[in-house]
């Protein structure tokens, strides 16, 4: 049996030789990313095309939607290679409940900009934590998708900067931040999570949920401060 601190799994084939705890833990992460990437594309990016204020924004949103969908496809493909049933990786077919953020019905362009600004920042932190993952196919996928994730967050910053140029736009964006942000810290999972303990034991992830959430709150506050906005107070624990 592999020693948790030394394990490095270079291929999907090698995964089959790992302890069940390792295989299940990696599978949970792949399923989670496959589902969340598709939820994001379906619940936010596709509806946002109709809310975009200009052709530039509309087509950029189209592209972002395709990139998010592409991320789903990458995780889905890896999951299939690992032997994960397809229905476990598709929203609507899986029994796994969506994150609360995905139950929000997108109604304004400002809400979408907020999702990119702060929601994709949360996604970046999750992907950053996989950049040194001991399961190399997942590590490589994280490295592959990271540049696009960063671009999506930059999309939020760029359109946020446009909105705050007018007092009315700034007020609408602040309202959207106030509505959207409270559901985002829960994205990092429960404190003292058993799953997270196993992820760290095997070097699949690096940080505790609490550490990631604290880092997220700090970075989110910095991002909105640059736009002259503030974050609403939220409960710290998920």
């Amino acid at each position: 049996m592999s020693e948790p601190s030394k394990v490095q799994v270079k291929t999907v084939a090698e995964l089959a030789e790992q302890p069940e705890e390792y295989r299940i833990a990696v599978g949970k992460l792949v399923i989670s990313h496959a589902i969340n990437e598709l939820y994001g594309a379906q619940v936010f990016d596709e509806p946002a095309v109709a809310l975009a204020p200009t052709p530039y924004a509309k087509w950029l949103t189209c592209r972002v939607a395709m990139e998010e969908y592409g991320h789903h496809c990458h995780f889905f493909k890896l999951g299939r290679e690992m032997g994960i049933p397809e229905e476990k990786m598709i929203p609507g077919k899986t029994e796994k409940r969506p994150l609360s953020i995905f139950e929000h019905k997108l109604e304004t362009w400002e809400e979408f900009v907020t999702i990119k600004l702060l929601g994709d920042l949360a996604e970046i932190l999750q992907v950053e934590d996989l950049l040194h993952c001991t399961f190399h196919p997942l590590r490589n996928l994280a490295r592959q998708t990271m540049p696009e994730e960063r671009f999506h967050a930059q999309f939020g910053i760029d359109f946020g900067q446009e909105l705050v140029k007018t007092p009315e736009g700034k007020a609408r964006l602040q309202e959207a931040v106030n509505r959207i942000f409270p559901s985002l810290p829960a994205f990092f999972g429960a404190a003292k999570s058993r799953n997270n303990e196993i992820f760290r034991k095997w070097g699949i992830k690096l940080r505790t949920n609490e550490e990631m959430r604290a880092d997220y709150l700090k970075r989110a506050a910095e991002v909105v401060a640059k736009l002259g906005l503030t974050l609403p107070k939220v409960a710290q624990a998920a």
């Binding site: 052709p55 087509w59 950029l60 592209r63 972002v64 671009f151």
Partner: peptide, 14 residues
Amino acid sequence: DVALARVAAGAATE
């Protein structure tokens, strides 16, 4: 301009 190239790509995809 990575953003403008993506705008063009989005238009073509649509």
